[in-house]
């Protein structure tokens, strides 16, 4: 079992002929993901890698191939429109990898997607992977393994680090989701925790947050009141100075709010086992399985 992505995932890649899109489309195919279509306006009728039909529009791709999930690798300035297009085409899950999407664009795209009843993951995220079944995005497949741990994270490479440590210790994952480091993202920690709580195969959850905002505090509240499965948490940015954006648009301590200390305290109050460093994930998860 898994969340959001499984053996029924039929994927359309928006921007499949671009530099990033083509590279990762190949990786996803090699992993065994059902990549059923690609979209690049003007290249409709061509075939990607001799196997995947390319269409001019997402609507056409959905109509002809039954794609139900989309992954977006287009340049940031076109990303919002790519999200609108996927939503209009009736895609149920839209994963936006693109980095640098203006936040005001997302204030329009998010309600639009929600209004169509679709789920958006990202933007500025590594996507998600259900090990051994399908990967949608850019998480390296070889560092993951199937197993009972759900992983949700605001980060990219830090997620890889934690997943890699889990896998090396023999702790596989149901699904790993990178929700993205921007201020406005489609899928929150709470959305993922809700799904992991309902997924019978997930026996423990690892939640990786960072400085900025209050999403982790809200997630902690959710864990305390609504979750029965054990949760292990980490917050990056304990040494970050206030007022500086630490790479991610959302990773900024404003005034006294959004600090790592505040978030770790919220985790502790909620009964979440707090990792002091990434390597702590292994013993803390093992104790709780």
């Amino acid at each position: 079992m898994s969340i959001f992505v499984n053996q029924d995932t039929r994927l359309v890649v928006q921007g499949i002929t671009g530099r990033d899109g083509s590279f990762h489309a190949r990786q996803m195919l090699a992993y065994g993901t059902k990549v059923v279509a690609g979209v690049t306006p003007g290249k409709g009728g061509q075939t990607f890698e001799g196997a995947v039909p390319i269409f001019n529009t997402v609507a056409e791709a959905v109509e002809r191939t039954g794609a139900n999930t989309s992954v977006i690798y287009v340049p940031a300035r076109f990303a919002a429109d790519a999200i609108f297009e996927a939503a209009d085409a009736g895609v149920a899950l839209i994963v936006c990898i693109s980095e640098g999407v203006p936040v005001l664009d997302m204030t329009r795209a998010y309600p639009y997607v929600a209004g169509k009843g679709a789920r958006l993951i990202g933007p500025n995220c590594p996507g998600l992977i259900t090990p051994g079944v399908a990967k949608v995005g850019i998480i390296p497949g070889q560092i993951c393994a199937p197993g009972p741990v759900g992983v949700v994270s605001r980060s990219g490479t830090l997620t890889y680090e934690v997943v890699y440590q889990l896998t090396r210790a023999g702790l596989g994952q149901t699904t790993c989701v990178g929700i993205g480091g921007d201020p406005i993202i489609g899928t929150s920690f709470i959305d993922c925790l809700t799904a992991f709580e309902a997924d019978p195969a997930t026996r423990a959850v690892v939640m990786i947050g960072e400085i900025g905002g209050t999403d982790e505090q809200n997630a902690a509240e959710f864990v305390a009141t609504r979750m029965h499965k054990p949760v292990v948490g980490f917050i990056a940015g304990q040494t970050a100075p206030p007022g500086r954006r630490m790479g991610h648009a959302g990773a900024i301590i404003s005034g006294s709010s959004g600090t790592a200390a505040e978030k770790m305290a919220a985790f502790e109050r909620a009964g979440i086992a707090v990792m002091k460093r990434p390597a702590d994930v292994v013993p803390l998860v093992k104790q709780r399985l």
Binding site: S155, L158, E161, A236, T239, A240, M246, G247
Partner: peptide, 27 residues
């Protein structure tokens, strides 16, 4: 010198954990 903002922050934190002080954030 790190790739990725989250890992860069976690690396700075780990420097502190081992008793050092990071000179910078660099992604």
């Amino acid at each position: 010198c790190v790739n990725g903002a989250g890992l860069a922050m976690a690396t700075m934190d780990l420097v502190k954990y081992y008793g050092g002080e990071p000179a910078n954030f660099l992604d």
